[in-house]
Design a protein around this nucleic acid. Sequence first.
DNA 1: CGTCGCATTGATACTTAAGCTCAACAACGG
DNA 2: CCGTTGTTGAGCTTAAGTATCAATGCGACG
Lengths: 141, 141
Amino acid sequence: MSTAPDSADRLEVTGYRLTAPRRAVLDAIAHTNRPFTIEELSDRLPNIGRATVFRTIKLLQELEIVCRVPLEDGGVRYERSRSGRHHHHLICSECGSVTEFNDPSLDASIEENATLAGFELDGHSAELYGRCASCRGGGAL
Amino acid sequence: MSTAPDSADRLEVTGYRLTAPRRAVLDAIAHTNRPFTIEELSDRLPNIGRATVFRTIKLLQELEIVCRVPLEDGGVRYERSRSGRHHHHLICSECGSVTEFNDPSLDASIEENATLAGFELDGHSAELYGRCASCRGGGAL
DNA sequence: CGTCGCATTGATACTTAAGCTCAACAACGG
DNA sequence: CCGTTGTTGAGCTTAAGTATCAATGCGACG
Ligand SMILES: [Zn+2]
Ligand SMILES: [Zn+2]
Ligand SMILES: [Zn+2]
Ligand SMILES: [Zn+2]
């Protein structure tokens, strides 16, 4: 049990090679709890080429091991997905933490709106911005 | 009635000057029905400095005259808002058209999830991706 | 009017993020 | 061992947006 055995498995099972650079990326994100940028990740992996970090993260997104978190200011971070399934994000503007949640009725509501508009839905995103419970507790009010 | 009188009013009422460059930008977006990039807009306004186009669009976003549309592939376009109020987008991956919709029950569902997580909600986004009614009608199926 | 002050403009340089290229390399199957 | 294919990484290129800063415009005031 070195790192993220399940993720590694998922890579191999899907037909991709589990190479040393890919393992290094998996390793690095397994040891991070904060959402990260590619640059940050790349800096922590000086022996791995930037392009490879990009490629690997893209790959991991497809496998739903990592997800893309769009910030309120237009920036983007990435986060190792806890659930590995479809979900949405609660993004704290104070501490930057990201919490996943899933709500079938929210998705249903989204689908309903698409149907109403005669739209064939193919994907969607929903991001919630604000202050997380612990930042509220610790700070004012 | 030259262009977008209401938008122009909104600019002035809010204390900003309605200058010639700003009017030109308002004019240009009033005559566009497709979501645009800043570059495209800037190209259509050769007499207006690029920086001014950026500044003006940013201003119009604050006034909710224009809204930022994040695409599925991570790109961004801008669109003159029809409603000028809070809404979400249906984005067609085939023709690129953007339709606004508003659904109080969707927003309620979002707020409920925030509350459940002890989160103080501050803003949110929801984008729907797929094929619009006319692209479906004209194409296959 | 004349003039002062502030908002605005725009050419340009700069920044940052992200993606692409392509030759070298590693793995694998036979 | 050799050819085929997937993978890598240094450096190049693009895109998007921002910073600079002098010049200009406009309004207020006397
Ligand atoms: Zn996520
Ligand atoms: Zn969903
Ligand atoms: Zn909109
Ligand atoms: Zn909403």
